[in-house]
Every structure is written in structure tokens, then in C-alpha cells.
């Protein structure tokens, strides 16, 4: 491995990593919002909306992000919906992540036994009060492990962004391999940068998970 080459490439990778992080965080945040909305619709069993959400979740979970991105980036402009690569990347990640987050929140909500709501109601709480003070705090803590897994999954999925010509880490690596044949250095930096991005999230995630489990409420 050539240290000079590494040094030369470092800024390119840094820039690419920043792009991935920016779009990744945005996509994850929007996924959480989408997921909360879908989970709420399913929990409250709102007619019609419930069916639409179900169809969306199945479509999103049973197709790869890569084809979702291709459709948004190359397909949609043909019917007049044009997006630049960054918007497309975030939109794709949100389309994918929304359903994963929805499932995490939904299984959290479903894990709370009905007696919890019933006893809150029997104490005179309204359904809203029962949801806010009794159901949600428990459901959210149950969904933490799935939530953490989803965040890491979505950050990893950003690695296909180069398909819609976003200059992310994969794009940079492929470029350098193709142009200069510095395969070893290019791949080494690729792995290092993904580790730098994903390891802290993964470690933080397992710390949060442990906290929730032990401070935990479990009966």
C-alpha cells in the first residue's frame, strides 16, 4: 500500500463520507416520521388510509432500494417528476426506511397487552391520555432494538446511492479503481471510512439497547 496515494485520496473520501452522512441522517429522520405516521394509522385502524399504508409497506419491503432509486431517478421524470440526485437519494431511503420503521413501531405497539389500556381507561383516562401516558412510553421502549437495527440498515443501504450518480464512497472508490488502478488503497479507504461511520452508530446502538433493557420496565 502506498502512503502517498492514501494521503492524496483522503480528502476525496472525506467529502464523499460527508455526503453519505448528510443524506443518511436526513433519510433516517424522514423514515422515522413516515414510520410513526404509518404506525399511528394502523394502530388507530383508520379506514382506507390503513389499506394504503399496508400496500405501501408491502411494496417498500419487498423491493430493493436500488430499483426504487432507478424508478424515482430515471422513471419518474418521464411523467414530469424530476429530482436531483440528492433529493432522489433521500426520497428513496425514506420510501424504504418508512416501512421498516413503521413495522418496528407497530410491533412495539402490539406488544403492549390490552389490559394496559383497559386499566388506564378504567381509571378515567381518555384514549388519548392512555396512549400518551401509558401505551406510547412502553411501546417506544420495546421498539428500540428494532429501531437501532433499522438505523444501521438504512445507513448501510446508502451504499447504492452511486447508482443515481451521487458521489458517495462507493462512487469515489469505483472511480479511483477505474482511473488509476490503485485498487488496494481505494478499497482500504472504503472499508476504513464505512467503519468510521458505522461502528460508532453500532456501538451507541448497543449501549442504548442495554440501557433500555436494564433500566427497563419489563415485568
Amino acid at each position: 500500500m502506498n502512503a502517498a496515494v492514501l494521503q492524496e485520496y483522503l480528502p476525496l473520501y472525506g467529502k464523499a463520507a460527508l455526503l453519505t452522512i448528510r443524506l443518511g441522517i436526513l433519510g433516517v429522520l424522514l423514515s422515522i416520521l413516515t414510520g410513526l405516521f404509518c404506525a399511528a394509522v394502523q394502530y388507530l385502524k383508520i379506514p382506507l388510509l390503513k389499506t394504503i399504508v399496508r400496500v405501501y409497506i408491502e411494496l417498500s419491503r419487498n423491493t430493493p432500494l436500488l430499483i426504487q432509486l432507478f424508478f424515482i431517478y430515471y422513471g419518474l421524470p418521464k411523467i414530469g417528476i424530476r429530482t436531483d440526485p440528492a433529493v432522489c437519494g433521500v426520497a428513496g431511503l425514506t420510501f424504504l426506511g418508512g416501512s421498516y420503521m413503521a413495522e418496528a413501531f407497530r410491533s412495539g405497539l402490539e406488544s403492549i397487552p390490552p389490559i394496559q389500556e383497559e386499566s388506564a381507561l378504567s381509571l378515567g383516562m381518555t384514549r388519548i391520555q392512555a396512549a400518551v401516558h401509558v401505551i406510547l412510553p412502553q411501546a417506544l421502549s420495546v421498539s428500540v432494538p428494532a429501531f437501532v437495527a433499522n438505523v444501521i440498515f438504512l445507513l448501510k443501504e446508502t451504499s447504492v446511492f452511486s447508482a443515481v450518480s451521487l458521489m458517495d464512497l462507493m462512487f469515489t472508490a469505483k472511480d479511483l479503481i477505474g482511473l488509476y488502478y490503485d485498487t488496494t488503497e481505494a478499497l482500504f479507504l472504503l472499508v476504513v471510512f464505512y467503519l468510521l461511520m458505522l461502528l460508532p452508530v453500532s456501538i451507541l446502538g448497543s449501549i442504548i439497547e442495554k440501557k433500555v433493557r436494564y433500566a427497563g420496565f419489563g415485568t
Binding site: I115, Q116, S119, A120, S122, L123, G124, M125, V134, Q138
Partner: peptide
């Protein structure tokens, strides 16, 4: 109407004190 159920229906995420005072405070 006060009701106590067969299965333990205390709110697991709250202390005993908060379990008891939640509804007088909120309701």
C-alpha cells in the same frame, strides 16, 4: 367505578408512586 383486574395491570414503566398518582394528576 374502581376496578382491579386479575392479571397485574400496573404500568410497568412507572414507579409505584407514579402508577398511583398518574390518573389523579392527569384526569
Amino acid at each position: 367505578i374502581g376496578m382491579v383486574f386479575q392479571s397485574y395491570d400496573l404500568f410497568p414503566h412507572l414507579t409505584v408512586m407514579d402508577n398511583i398518582t398518574l390518573s389523579p394528576r392527569k384526569v
